[in-house]
Design a protein around this nucleic acid. Structure first.
Lengths: 237, 237
DNA sequence: AAGTGGTCTAGACCACACA
DNA sequence: GTGTGGTCTAGACCACTTT
């Protein structure tokens, strides 16, 4: 772990536990760099990180303040999280029910989204993610089989993302997402414990490796009352 | 203009004009820092910026490469847009119907979200945004009256965000957003031309000035079949 | 072993706010 | 003027990949 990451973690903790209270000023950078025994550059990098996350804001000539809003500390999924559900809900029972697991050739649309040819096979997976015995997310995923190799049922029951990142060593570079509401489809009615008038939240995404290669197209559907997405957006000045 | 911004601009130009072509490697950091006559730290900061924008990606031990992806570069229709609907739909007729316009004192929750006291008045506005004669978004907005001063009905019919940025000269620093699906409420049924089983997409947001002061809390509701939000998310390496 | 990007330092100077 | 955050340097060492 880098020094600046460790410092950022410690600062996050202090803010979370109100050692630095809302609206209050943090100690100045020189004092903090002395406390952590690092150079001011390194300390500033840590503050850069938590400022990007929206925890603090800085006023040149004045100081660094804790920024807070009740919305901030919710349990909603952060949209830019690739750790998988088990990490996001460490204290809950996370299970998967596999509805479909197959290898197919991609449709025209999928070829275009994943930048592959018609003879490049893709894994096609439908999973129901269950948290604390309640149906939570219905995922339909296509993985480029040439990249995400040797996917087994066993892996799908556990965490696919852990497999991709830890075992295969692939590095995720980013994602393009679309969020919209939808009417429930037949599978939703069957699996998500909802009726025909239950709104559904769907996140559609293409996920890329660091070299720009798309490796996944997926849709994640949840009942309107079980999931929300949060986005912190800070304009770079 | 800082050195690293100038260098980032120059690198953007070279990539845009294919002086560094797609997939090719940039000169290494030491060579570039010599070319621009800056320290390597400063040069790296410039590359950090264009990497965050998704123009290049870096492989430790290998080099820095020009990254291209059609999706990546068209990501300008992003969620973080503060120009107002008229700018987003330049070729369409954008109208507003004012449902409510009032000044009130904030609820406890609003006080916390906007970091104000109970005796700090807020504007309370409900507007229906209409595009090409079709109801599009139902907005409920609270502005901190001490910041967004002298709001008139006239302004609300036009663009509030233009007023805030152009006339008042306030600078928007960012926003915290939550996206979820919802059941239609009574006002939705009345104004958005929907039935009780029409899913609604709601975006809830707190918008901040550059100094971290929240000035707006709002919810924007649309029918599921009229609006989606897109997000491009590039992981910092 | 050589070359790449990533981190970190100790110190300098600048830009800005406020008293 | 004093104190804050922002930028920049010149050089060191580390982590990783390729030869």
């Amino acid at each position: 772990m880098n020094k600046y990451e460790e410092i950022a973690n410690e600062l996050r903790r202090r803010i979370a536990e109100s050692e630095y209270a809302e609206g209050e000023m943090l100690p100045d950078q020189i004092a903090l760099s002395k406390e952590f025994n690092v150079s001011r550059m390194t300390l500033k990098k840590a503050i850069d990180i938590i400022a990007m996350e929206g925890l603090v804001f800085r006023k040149r000539g004045v100081g660094t303040f804790v920024l807070k809003s009740a919305l901030w500390n919710t349990s909603d999924s952060k949209i830019d999280d690739y750790t998988g559900l088990s990490k996001q809900f460490p204290n809950k029972k996370v299970e998967s029910k596999i509805i479909l697991f197959d290898i197919v050739f991609p449709s025209k649309e999928l070829q275009s989204l994943l930048m592959i040819e018609e003879n490049d096979p893709v894994y096609h997976i439908k999973r129901l993610r269950i948290i604390d015995n309640k149906p939570y997310i219905l995922e339909e995923t296509y993985f480029v089989a040439g990249l995400v190799q040797q996917l087994t049922e066993e892996t799908i029951y556990a965490s696919i993302y852990e497999y991709i990142q830890q075992t295969l060593g692939l590095k995720i570079g980013g994602a393009y997402r679309k969020i919209h509401a939808d009417l429930p489809n037949e599978l939703d009615l069957l699996e998500l414990n909802c009726t025909e008038s239950t709104p559904i939240l769907e996140v559609e995404q293409v996920v890329y490796l660091t070299n720009g290669t798309p490796f996944e197209y997926s849709t994640s559907r949840s009942r309107y009352d079980t999931r929300a997405y949060t986005i912190t957006d800070i304009i770079k000045q």
